Simulated assay, not measured.
Amino acid sequence: MTPDKRADYWKANLRYLLVLLVVWFVVSYGFGILLVEPFNAIHLGGYPLGFWFAQQGSIYIFVALIFIYAALMNRLDKEYDVEED
């Protein structure tokens, strides 16, 4: 792979990481801490939504983001022809 293609690959990887980390931050910090009071007016399974995001929602989102990142990287690997055998 040429140095230019390597740099493009790394930039795309960092873009994916940044977007996914921002989503995780918004869900865990924003929904679980900053917006807990408005979300507590809504109930999910008998529990206030703000509590749910603080206790379990951010974990579920984190696990989902792991799978999303893996899928994005597989697609990026195919695009740059560096996929695993």
Rank of each mutant, 00 (worst) to 15 (best):
Leu34Ile: 08
Val36Met: 14
Asn13Leu: 13
Asp4Lys: 08
Leu18Glu: 07
Tyr80Met: 04
Gly32Lys: 07
Val23Arg: 07
Val23Thr: 08
Ser58Lys: 12
Tyr69Met: 11
Phe25Cys: 10
Asp77Val: 00
Ser58Ile: 00
Tyr69Trp: 11
Pro3Lys: 09
Leu34Cys: 04
Gly30Gln: 04
Leu21Gly: 13
Gly50Cys: 07
Asp85Lys: 04
Ile66Pro: 01
Glu37His: 06
Leu35Cys: 06
Leu44Tyr: 14
Ile61Ser: 09
Ala54Cys: 00
Pro38Arg: 10
Leu65His: 07
Asp8Glu: 15
Leu18Asp: 02
Leu17Ser: 13
Asp85Pro: 15
Val23Gly: 07
Gly46Leu: 00
Pro48Trp: 03
Gly32Pro: 09
Ser58Arg: 12
Tyr16Asn: 15
Asn13Ala: 09
Val22Lys: 02
Ile59Ala: 12
Asn40Thr: 01
Phe53Gln: 03
Gly50Asn: 00
Val22Leu: 14
Leu49Trp: 09
Ser58Asp: 03
Met1Val: 12
His43Leu: 01
Trp52Met: 10
Ser28Cys: 01
Gln56Ile: 15
Leu18Trp: 04
Leu76Lys: 07
Phe53Leu: 09
Asp4Gly: 11
Arg6Phe: 04
Trp52Ile: 05
Trp24Phe: 05
Ile33Cys: 08
Gly57Thr: 00
Gln55Met: 10
Thr2Lys: 08
Leu20Gln: 08
Trp10Met: 15
Asp8Asn: 10
Asn74Ser: 13
Glu84Lys: 10
Leu20Val: 02
Glu79Gly: 00
Tyr47Ile: 05
Leu34Pro: 04
Glu84Asp: 14
Asp8Phe: 01
Leu44Cys: 00
Ala64Pro: 09
Trp24Leu: 07
Met73Cys: 08
Ile33Asp: 14
Ile42Met: 11
Tyr16Gly: 06
Ala54Gln: 14
Phe67Leu: 15
Arg6Pro: 00
Pro38Phe: 00
Ala7Asp: 14
Asn40Glu: 08
Leu21Cys: 13
